[in-house]
Amino acid sequence: MKLLNEHDRESCRNVWIISEFLPDGELHAVSFELLGAARTLAEELGCEVWAAALGRDVSKAAPQLISRGADKVIAVEDGRLEYFNDEFECNILERLVCKYRPEILLGAATSRGRALIPRLAGKLYCGLTADCTGLSIDKETGVLLQTRPAFGGNIMATIQSGGFRPQMATVRPKVMKALEADPIRTGEIIYEAVTEKDGEKIKEIIKAVTEAQSNVNLSDANIIVSGGRAVKGPEGFRLLEELASRLGGAVGASRAAVDSGWIAYPHQVGQTGQTVQADLYIACGISGQIQHLIGMQSCKTIVAIDKDDSTPMMQMADIAIKGDLFEIIPKIIEELDKNGINKGGNKQ
């Protein structure tokens, strides 16, 4: 099992990223963000950036990955790669990692990455740090330093796994900076075939559905309008949806609102819901229990709207609006209209 670790660790070289795709086969923006992070590390180490791209057809993605910082693209194409299959992708990657021996491997902390990458680390016997917010190379040892929030963001831990190869980390979308596409950048595309063994003992994908409703995708949203107990019911969330639609954002909710059945679970932000990283988080009638704050405190700008200005949310917010959300939100929508701001098109 210690394929890369016991013998010639020194022979492991280059920084890999595992590309993330959207359901339509386009690259997810996090792939470019991973490349941006990988470039910085590779320059420090004096090595190359390689992107692994697994999909039904990656012919369009491969040059895009190069233009965003990859020196080489390992392209693996197979019809079965259209939908996420943990075992299949893990088998392929395990084989390729053992063949090409990367020093560092970065993946996206998406629902796919958070299932696939730990399986891969489990197989390879190497370290993996989830949800890193900072990556750097230790000047003395050349080891990858991985910083992540721990214990609900109460502490930042710096972790290393330099005794094992590859050193692996996942990064949430919107944390790292992508490089601008450089159309004249050149690189090499290496096509790797799927083997029969890769396809053994893999699950069957019966059906995959992409929700038409776009306001539920919290992890990619730049703006989230989120509601809590004071939203009072499903009708209250209609108002939040309208505001979110004007802003081109998604709708979030506190656990209290979800448990009351006012809005579906995929909207829940917090400890037992999702962790979000939006540029703008508008908390409407959310008091800000620790379990909720854990899930949204790394949003860049936090706005709170509440009648009670003594709540933890109103205290921690960058902008705190005191008042009745049922009165203020319609006025905000009017004000946005006056300024010609309507990102949601003609939904309302």
């Binding site: 680390a121 370290g127 993996l128 929030p149 502490i155 930042m156 005794g163 936090i302 917010a317 960058d318």
Partner: peptide, 17 residues
């Protein structure tokens, strides 16, 4: 495989409310 090198308090949130 992973070892914690150090821990630090998170960066404080920006300006006043």
């Amino acid at each position: 495989p992973t070892q914690v090198v150090k821990t630090a308090p998170p960066a404080a949130r920006g300006a006043e409310t």
